[in-house]
């Protein structure tokens, strides 16, 4: 195992984030504040409690997930795509380091960054609504697993993309709609029966539901189903990354 190599990639990616620390932290914090002003104070005050939780507090887990999903994908996809774009990937490909170790470096750094941002969003939310986390261990589990899984997905997107346009395609056209329609701002029980069933096809529903359960013990689907779904999604992403490494897809001619 090339531990020095993994750490070098990890440190390199983290230092890239530190170079733009204002942007990395200020952007999600400002977005969260805006969401709370609009949905928490302005609109939220006119919406009744959901499962005994005020609307402002109800949307906290969804907001964190919304930010973490986007950050994980964009951090990891940009992390691996940029060296491909500039050509510095030659150094990674010629180094005595396995693709698995390369993935640990890039995905680890992307997951760390999105985890930090998720925690900052959580702390920011604490200024607007009283927070209660009934199952902190499960909360940490869902947060960490989501960061890792979606960073893996971002890594796959970064390898698949052959231009900056494609790099934005999946986050903008697939992930953002799925997150908004996955119960970030509402319980899927509020939807008509037909749309509830359709919503169950959205994998993000299970992440937000499980994550929200860890806060308030209220969920759209059971905890077991949420855990199973995130593990299945993680497995799919790992299988895809393994296939990329085996074939050298988009990495080696």
């Amino acid at each position: 195992m090339n531990y020095h190599g993994i750490l070098a990639i990890y440190k390199f990616e983290m230092s890239r984030a530190f170079r733009t620390i204002g942007q990395s932290i200020a952007s999600p914090v400002i977005s969260t504040v805006l969401y709370f002003i609009v949905f928490g104070a302005a609109i939220g005050s006119r919406i009744e409690d959901i499962d005994g939780v005020s609307y402002g507090a109800f949307i906290v887990p969804g907001l964190i997930m919304l930010t973490v999903l986007g950050q994980s994908i964009s951090n990891a996809s940009f992390g691996i795509y940029f060296p491909r774009f500039t050509g510095t990937i030659y150094e990674i490909l010629s180094a005595p380091i396995s693709f698995f170790e390369v993935a640990i470096g890039y995905v680890g750094a992307a997951a760390t960054k999105s985890l930090v941002v998720g925690i900052i969003v959580l702390m920011t939310a604490g200024f607007f609504v009283p927070l209660e986390i009934q199952h902190p261990v499960w909360m940490a589990f869902f947060l960490v697993m989501t960061c890792i899984t979606f960073s893996l997905l971002g890594f796959i997107v970064g390898i698949w993309a052959d231009g900056f346009e494609k790099l934005q395609l999946i986050p903008l056209l697939i992930i953002t709609p799925l997150t908004f329609l996955g119960g970030s701002f509402y319980s899927i029980h509020m939807l008509p029966d037909f749309w509830q069933k359709i919503s169950l096809l959205n994998p993000v529903v299970y992440l937000i539901s499980g994550f929200r359960w860890s806060f308030y013990e209220s969920s759209d689907v059971s905890l077991g189903v949420s855990v199973t779904m995130i593990l299945v999604f993680l497995g799919i992403c790992m299988a895809l990354v393994a296939w990329i490494f085996k074939t050298g897809y988009r990495l080696k001619n």
């Binding site: 020095h4 190599g5 230092s15 170079r19 500039t86 510095t88 380091i97």
Partner: peptide, 21 residues
């Protein structure tokens, strides 16, 4: 092909560690 925003010291140190040293 270099990392334009990195310093000379960091990029050279990165290469050494990437090769397992």
């Amino acid at each position: 092909t270099t990392d334009a925003f990195e310093t000379v010291w960091k990029t050279v140190s990165f290469s050494r560690e990437l090769f397992g040293k």
